[in-house]
Nucleic acid binder design. Sequence first.
DNA 1: TAGCGTACATAGAGATTCTAGGTATGACTT
DNA 2: AAGTCATACCTAGAATCTCTATGTACGCTA
Lengths: 111, 111
Amino acid sequence: MTAPRGGLLQGTLDLLVLKTLTWGPRHGYGIARWLEDTTDDALQIEEGSLYPSLYRMERRGWIEASWGASEIGKRIKIYSLTRAGRAQLRSESAQWRHFTMAVAKVMESHA
Amino acid sequence: MTAPRGGLLQGTLDLLVLKTLTWGPRHGYGIARWLEDTTDDALQIEEGSLYPSLYRMERRGWIEASWGASEIGKRIKIYSLTRAGRAQLRSESAQWRHFTMAVAKVMESHA
DNA sequence: TAGCGTACATAGAGATTCTAGGTATGACTT
DNA sequence: AAGTCATACCTAGAATCTCTATGTACGCTA
């Protein structure tokens, strides 16, 4: 589902997660809640999309994880941005802007 | 993949093609050229993405095709929007705006 | 006749997202 | 005490889309 159509996130999940982590380390569940809150639930973060995404990005060296405990005493896996992750975020941000501007040119075309 | 990440079009190809056809019937190759011209080549429309997309949309009843001839005498397949295609375009347009606005909220967040 | 642009088509690979399950713990309710 | 809910992580497999690579065909031009 590109994005794709199957999925509503259309390939932007990594970008969204990386951006979220610029506000400090967070665990997966917390990232999902923050994204949903920030967008007034316009974005729904499915766990079946989120955890594989986190795993991919960790493997690529964009984020790193450590185990900790939440305020209510639950075991959580805390992710933070690496230097490479910051670079990746800059790159994906630029690509996203470039892409959406191109789509906007088409959608706002007249004639 | 999309959206997707493998692909640069992230699942928006159908939307872009439907929008292109609001300016009148066009053949596949012409749609690709128009999109590239309109976006100053920011979007590259691969034929391996375009033709399957046209097939899908024809099968779904969003566009319909008829054979014709180009100005230089080549056999071309001319697509036009159906009523269902116009409805689909309105729907996908709205979803796209909704989605990009949500992403923008995240990307422009501060804190 | 070699090359280029036009024009359509498809198979298979690659990538991402989603559905649908599973495991575990603590807090709160009945 | 038992049931339910929210928190929290994880994974397999399906679905979908885009891309790479390739093939066919024709007309023009150098």
